[in-house]
Simulated scan of single mutants.
Amino acid sequence: MRILLIGNFSPLCEEEPLHNFTLLNLLKRDGHECRAINIGDTRSKDERIVNAGSYFDFITKLISLGLRCKVIHFLTKGYVRPGLMKLMTTVFLGRLFRAKIIITLHSELFSIFGRLRSKMGGQQLLYFSFSLADRIICSDRHTFDVALTHHRAKEKFIIIPSFILLPEEISEKDTIRLRNLENKNRIIVFAGVSYPSLLFDILNDLLANYLDPGTGLAVCVSREDSVKLQHVIKEASGERAGNIVFIEPDDPRLLTLALTRADLMLRTLSCDARILFKDIAFSIKRPAHGKRYLYFPVSVSFINEGNVMDLCARIMKNLIEEPAEALMPSEEDFYEKIKDIYPV
């Protein structure tokens, strides 16, 4: 079956592109003829991915790749206007192509900005897109509830968490790369760290005042700041430098392996690979394991109002020190649920 995936396939350390690549890999493994268009600001080097530049470039590539597809699946966080324009265009042209149209709304700020969409354009874009789509997948209950305010056809909507395929084997090389996380009581992943940013300030405060020997950190810094920031973080960590593993932005395997061991992930907010509000906000997510997948059923976003770095670091310290009950593993096969939506 010919399938076209459209979404963020940028080489960034966060769960959205990891989920998108997981879906692409599983569909190709099952023998489907699957292509993908990257609408993220950062270009993908994967030969299976077609990078879209301007809006008109996107339209050209959508027509070229989507014309004979049976399924067109658009994956987005859904709160940046250029992405919504591409979503509406995809749904409209997909209907002309007689393809089945699937939309995935990844969890983040849609549950906030979805309520604030302008009546002079934003709400109409969502209503039009949801009306013409065959199914809308929401990654959590909050996103589901907000999406329903834009379209009342509840039968179109379904909740399926964004998931990442767990590695089947861990090589000796992987073990060596993650050796600084061995035998740690708690592991925290910091993803998308840049300077200046609130996330960097929290990491710096945590290293200076609150990090204990039993906590391991996996830190993925932004591409443009990679070498410089790694040096600064090592200097700030002092004798705790042996507790840190650095992950390059284009190393999804190492990030996935770190997340399989992590108790918490902290990262900057983004949409379609565009970093947003890095000076005032960051997200905390708690991973859980399913049958074959990693997913994130618990998350919260922090927004800076005044000087809250020390407060956030103290909250992080309590989260690290307080024993947390393990999240119940899900027995659902999320990939099979998506395949059930696709035509046979």
Results as ranks from 00 to 15, higher is better:
2 R>L: 05
9 F>K: 03
12 L>K: 02
24 L>N: 03
26 L>Y: 01
28 K>C: 11
29 R>W: 11
40 G>F: 06
42 T>N: 03
55 Y>T: 01
66 G>I: 03
76 T>G: 07
77 K>H: 06
81 R>L: 13
82 P>E: 06
82 P>Q: 00
84 L>M: 15
86 K>F: 06
86 K>S: 09
96 L>N: 05
102 I>W: 00
110 F>Y: 14
119 K>S: 15
126 L>Y: 11
130 F>R: 14
131 S>T: 15
132 L>E: 07
141 R>M: 05
142 H>R: 15
142 H>Y: 12
159 I>E: 08
177 R>T: 00
192 G>H: 04
192 G>P: 07
193 V>G: 06
202 I>F: 05
205 D>N: 13
206 L>I: 07
208 A>V: 10
208 A>D: 08
210 Y>R: 14
211 L>N: 05
213 P>R: 12
214 G>M: 10
225 D>V: 04
225 D>L: 05
228 K>L: 12
231 H>T: 10
231 H>C: 09
232 V>P: 00
237 S>P: 05
237 S>H: 08
245 V>I: 07
245 V>M: 04
246 F>N: 01
247 I>S: 07
248 E>M: 12
248 E>I: 00
265 M>S: 10
268 T>N: 15
269 L>E: 10
279 D>S: 15
281 A>N: 09
283 S>H: 09
284 I>C: 11
290 G>K: 00
297 P>R: 06
298 V>W: 06
299 S>R: 04
307 N>F: 05
310 D>K: 15
316 M>K: 04
320 I>C: 15
330 S>D: 15
332 E>W: 00
333 D>Q: 05
